[in-house]
Design a protein around this nucleic acid. Structure first.
Lengths: 200, 200
DNA sequence: GTCTATACTGAGATAGAC
DNA sequence: GTCTATCTCAGTATAGAC
């Protein structure tokens, strides 16, 4: 289809604007301006703002799945793969400082709007949660794998929120270091199952 | 002043609406309706939406200071006081599940809006940060007191974000338990200073 | 498939009567 | 101090020409 390119450009621009400025704060004009098309043309592709949000979430889901698959292939051990997740805080630190975590901030905004696409946005978190859960199970923590996954997710969310508020690079570095150390202990079987993911 | 009551009602209603529905998603009509006054009357008290945001943040700052002072008086030890902070996750879990953390979500939204009141909202976080820092210093962790404070703040932010997304009560309970255990170790001097707040 | 023109709505904000 | 009436503007959305 020859319309694929324009549609993709719209979704791409919307994705970025939603992340940088928030879903509600982004207008059709903002998106149309970014893609350099008219508002009328915009409506040829998306009839409502909710339609484009759905499309953006779909793209994010696909991109996330691809990223997790990549980590799966690249990491030789479960610990190494979990480390890939933890280290996106470093890789994306510039964006995180400015705009927070794209997944966390979208879910927070949609919760306040009581938006119909909340479940789809939560599914974005679920991808990470299930993937991490699988890795912890492979590490021999079958019984508390999900709790450990949620703990790692919570840590990274908290770090993203505070890094965004305080604009602090060193804080990210420090917390990632601690998560790495913690993960090494888990991988060595030094953290008891009875107290999963207890912070030391 | 006899106008104090109406003004206070407006700020109170705005405070709650901003928390529940977000700052941008809350209109003047929403606030006026909640207080049961006309929009025109509303403008007698606040000329712009930014004005009322400022007033709301001021009230939140005052309330937070009062709460911290209360914890200071009630807690016999620094550890007990820090525990007061950690346990607001339990106390406010119903609201947190529905709307997230009032401080974290406000800061995240204002960051996306690139709003002028960002520093004031960040000051809200700073109150907790400095207070926690002081308590950790009293616990004998002078050198890494601020890092520990940030770590506790990050944990609670992450827990609030995920509890909001997944609507999970047991998750909150579990993470608070772990933070309590961790705090006990810190209080007993069992966590080395060289690796501040390393997760175990 | 892309554009212009236009309708409709709700939000922020003001003026002035009571 | 409270209200109604009104203005302006941005945002969503539609119709229809090219």
């Amino acid at each position: 289809m020859s319309d694929k390119s324009t549609r993709d450009h719209i979704v791409e621009a919307a994705d970025q604007l939603f992340y940088h400025n928030g879903f509600e704060h982004t207008s059709f004009s903002d998106i149309a301006d970014a893609v350099k098309i008219s508002r009328g043309n915009f409506y040829y592709y998306f009839k409502t703002k909710d339609d484009i949000l759905e499309a953006v979430i779909d793209v994010r889901l696909a991109k996330t799945r691809a990223m997790l698959d990549q980590w799966e292939r690249d990491g030789r051990t479960p610990a190494e793969r979990i480390r890939s997740f933890i280290h996106i805080l470093i890789t994306n630190r510039a964006d995180i400082k400015q705009y927070g975590c794209p997944v966390g901030t979208l879910n927070a905004e949609l919760a306040k709007l009581d938006h119909g696409s909340r479940p789809e946005a939560a599914a974005l978190f679920m991808l990470f949660r299930n993937w991490l859960c699988k890795q912890f199970a492979l590490l021999g923590r079958k019984r508390d794998a999900d709790a450990l996954a949620m703990h790692v997710l919570a840590m990274s969310q908290g770090v993203a929120t505070l890094a965004n508020t305080f604009q602090d690079d060193r804080f990210i570095q420090r917390e990632v270091q601690q998560m790495d150390d913690w993960l090494a202990l888990i991988a060595d079987g030094e953290v008891p199952t009875s107290r999963p993911a207890r912070v030391n």
